[in-house]
């Protein structure tokens, strides 16, 4: 049977992370499952964990009065869910809802932040993985907001 460290090492987000660090972050991880329609995170709630998605689709949503829940973006297998756990005040800025049955690794945020503070090289290794994804998502969100296919751009 595979250990948690073996399992998380297979996730693309952690590709290339040393065995030592995989063992270290595995100590903050557990397997979780979310049924379709259930909320994984809720806007405004403490960002107590982040997730590496293994299976299933997740929609990031915001609620607007008179419009209901608006889907900003969907995520799927191999994506990361949530960056608010890195940045004070550690509160989610959107909802995340399981569209399908979702399997994921959930990492305890306090545990992981503590290990990053204690070993900045681990923190840097994780940030090098987070920042390109966040940058890519910001760029994609800008493009999305341009409504490129609706206008003659």
């Amino acid at each position: 049977m595979k250990s948690m460290a073996d399992l998380i090492r297979e996730h693309p987000f952690l590709a290339g992370l040393s065995d030592e660090y995989c063992e270290l972050v595995a100590g903050c991880a557990k397997n979780v499952v979310f049924e379709p329609g259930s909320y994984i995170i809720r806007e405004g709630q403490p960002a107590g964990q982040f997730h590496l998605l293994r299976e299933g689709q997740v929609s990031l949503e915001v609620y607007a009065p008179r419009r209901g829940s608006i889907v900003l973006q969907t995520l799927g297998a191999n994506d990361i869910l949530g960056a608010s756990w890195i940045v004070p005040p550690y509160r989610w800025t959107s909802d995340a809802r399981a569209v399908e049955r979702v399997r994921a690794f959930a990492f305890d945020a306090t545990c992981l932040r503590g290990k990053c503070e204690a070993d900045p090289a681990l923190g840097y290794a994780l940030m090098k993985r987070f920042v390109p994804i966040i940058l890519q998502r910001v760029t994609a969100a800008r493009m999305q907001s341009l409504d490129l296919y609706g206008a003659s751009v």
Binding site: V99, I133, A140, M143
Partner: peptide, 15 residues
């Protein structure tokens, strides 16, 4: 009614 992906097309390329 849309249960598919939402987001800019570049988000699909990553994986």
């Amino acid at each position: 009614n849309w249960a598919g992906r939402v987001g800019f097309v570049t988000a699909l390329l990553g994986h």
